[in-house]
Amino acid sequence: MQLAYYPGCSLQQSSKLYDVQSRRIFSELGAELVEIEDWNCCGATSAGKVDDFMAMAMPARNIGIAEGAGFTEMVIPCSACYSRTLVAQQRIKDNAALAEEINSELAAPINGSLKVSSILEALEERIASGALKDRVVHKLTGLRPVCYYGCMLTRFPYAVPVPDDVENPQGMERVLGTLKIKTIDWNHKTSCCGASASVNDPETAHNLMAEIMKDAVARGANCVVTTCPMCQMNLDAQQEAFCLKHDIETRLPVFFITEIIGAAMDLPPAELQTDRHFIDGTTLLKELEQHEEKGK
């Protein structure tokens, strides 16, 4: 089957690995992610701070393109893109005048038939069909991840149908549970990493990330798993800096959930670009695999 796919700007650039992994994982699970034609930037969290109308109009064009091509579901792995698109869709649905204003400028106007899915929702559909379970090769025993959702998957600036529990989401736990991975319960799964503050207000972002990291370490986690490219980049690229500043000795690899699924499916790490982390994650995955070999 085919699903419309919106990669967004991040997945074409600094988080290309997430794009590569997402396409590969879904193809393994029997769903082809088809990139929609000529998509544009969703405006991310910045647009709402600069131009409210464009914050609705930018994702609207992408929704129209996907609907015009006949898709009924669009998967958006990036949490910010997902959030912006879902909010724009709902606000346009609730406001006929806004819909008319935006639609009149679009080559492919919105008709309201598209389901916007986060990567977790799309993965959970694959769990329900049994497709994910059937593809597990490695057990990854010894992996002790904390699931990190950040802000954008469950908290929205507008009343949209929230896909998971707001304060204690479980989607990632369900996906990893299907792979028989034991996740660690913790306090900071929906805390904020600071997002763009890591660039424009690093002091604040480092304070926020240090709290997240301290809890993960105290719980005995040996990695962080996330679905958000912004969270991944921040916790990975800034980890050395904020850990030094806050006297944290441990370093934890920060994986996209697709990397863990890929490792469980025995897909080659090089192909999944797992070697492109600031904090190395390939060693841990290799060790777990060797450990499993010995156990046999």
Binding site: Q12, S14, W39, N40, G43, S46, A47, V50, N200
Partner: peptide, 18 residues
């Protein structure tokens, strides 16, 4: 400055160039 630069890039090119 950050949010201005970000949105300007997205609007000018249709996509944000990091």
């Amino acid at each position: 400055e950050f949010h201005d630069a970000f949105v300007r890039s997205g609007l000018r090119w249709g996509r944000v160039n990091e």
